[in-house]
Simulated assay, not measured.
Amino acid sequence: MSAPPVQATLDDFELGEEVAWGSLATIIDAIYKKNGKHYALKVLNKAQLVKKKVIRSALVEKDALIALGTRPQRHPGLVRLHHCFQDSLHLYFALDLATNGDMKVLVQKLGSISLDCARYYTAQLVDAVIFLHESGVAHRDIKPENILLNSEMRIMLADFGCSYIGKDMESEFLAKWPCRLFNRLEDIAPRTNTFVGTAAYISPELLSRSEANPTSPDIWAVGCTLFFFLYGTSPFTAATDYLTMKRVRALDYSLPPECDKGAADLMKELLVLDPMERIGVPPKSSSEKLRQHSFFVGTETSMPENDASPTTWSYINWQSLWKDSPPPIEVGPYRIRPHDASTTTEELWSGFESLQVNSD
């Protein structure tokens, strides 16, 4: 009988620089002394978790990561949990380190990314999301800052604090779906309608807390993320979260007339108010139908003559998606305006010393 694994502690890590931080967590580049590998050490302050009443979020993230990590097959597009431990003040997660930041920062630096880049990264996101759902996990907070980039510029989906975990979500929902109009919401989809996520990427069914397949909010977020890749903003962005959510409920967005036909068609099929009519959401659609959309695989006239891997990522070969080299990062249809990029700190502060204050 093998001995139980030794629990890691903070003393097992050599702490380096902070690489990210937020209201609840700080991410530190840390070296695990026993193997010399770098990890992203996510540190959560217990007092803050209690104060903001989000203790469950940390527990859900741990449960989701453990559920995914114990699957017979692991997915390369998901951050992996290596250690979790605690002390009197903090909770710690030792995760894969994303050495190239996240998609939000990457896209905002350029204004947008090219159509082929958007196709490649959206395909990787779709593949990771499908694996999640097949594993009984719905992410429910997919957004560009939660899509990390590893050393090879491939994605790693992170931050599972808003997740929903079920043994077989789709089967459980579909078994009750035919009589969904006649049953109470909590009998149809328990805890799948909890308000979670970020305003610009949250689905209308979560906003209205209506019954839905628990996988449907992730599919909606894929559509919002593709729009962000191409145009550097969410399709529903407004001055405040309230106005943003109002636009989501009204499906108030527009696509530029020059938008690629395939991309436009996919976003229109993803950004649908009724989740049951959304591409990729059972029972009316499926993950395979989403994978085979023309934006990813082309049309009959544009399909490649053989199964060779794409060189420009003008189409997706799903079999080699995680093996072939990523496309070079190129600027897309929306570019940062020159004056936006050239504004200096000195210009912003230029009038400060001229302010006059009456000291009497």
Rank of each mutant, 00 (worst) to 15 (best):
K104L: 08
L78K: 01
A3R: 15
T312P: 12
I113C: 09
C259W: 06
K37F: 08
S216D: 01
N193P: 06
M303Q: 05
H133L: 00
I279A: 04
Q319I: 14
H339V: 11
Q319K: 15
L49F: 06
H133N: 01
V357F: 15
I31M: 11
L185H: 12
T311I: 13
A67N: 09
R291H: 10
Q73N: 13
T244I: 10
R335P: 09
Y164H: 07
S208A: 10
R291N: 13
Q292D: 13
Y164T: 07
K323G: 09
L243W: 13
D12Y: 08
L226V: 03
P214L: 07
S2P: 15
A67E: 13
S23Q: 13
G280W: 06
V129M: 02
S2L: 15
L206M: 07
P190M: 08
L49H: 06
F296S: 04
I113S: 00
F229S: 04
V129I: 03
D63I: 09
F13M: 05
T312H: 15
L251T: 03
A58V: 01
F295M: 06
G111H: 04
F13R: 01
V79I: 11
A128W: 06
G351W: 13
S354W: 15
P5L: 12
T9E: 06
K42R: 10
V60W: 00
D159G: 00
L91D: 06
V50P: 00
V222A: 02
K284T: 11
T237C: 12
S23Y: 12
R335C: 12
A47R: 13
Q319G: 14
N100C: 12
L207R: 02
V43C: 11
S286G: 09
L181E: 14
L91S: 06
D141G: 00
A238H: 04
M1W: 14
A308Q: 14
F236H: 05
W220H: 05
L65D: 11
E170I: 05
K104M: 13
Q292Y: 13
L185C: 14
P257Q: 11
A40N: 01
S325G: 10
L321T: 02
H139S: 00
Y315H: 14
L91V: 06
F195M: 04
K42L: 07
D29L: 11
N35S: 08
